[in-house]
Amino acid sequence: MSASLAPECNQVKERYDNCFLKWYSEKYLRGSATTDECASLFKQYEQCLSKALKDKGIDKMIKDARDDNRENDAEHMRPKR
């Protein structure tokens, strides 16, 4: 897995990434995912990352990008029949 832009978050990120990959390949793709078992690891990673994003001023850029991305969401969150 790749590193985090915030080196202090690398450890918790790796734990989360491994959890996610296992869930994705063993449960999600097989249609047997019921709960998000990586949620608590993600929360830890997110806490670490959001601080770094704020310090670097990237959080504001992300907010604008989210607004710009609404069309993509509308198009791709609906499956094609």
Partner: peptide, 20 residues
Amino acid sequence: HVVAVDTLSRNVDPETGILR
């Protein structure tokens, strides 16, 4: 040239099953 990849959010849409 790709030095880091961070996940900002992740969720499964309960209706469609799409992972965003």
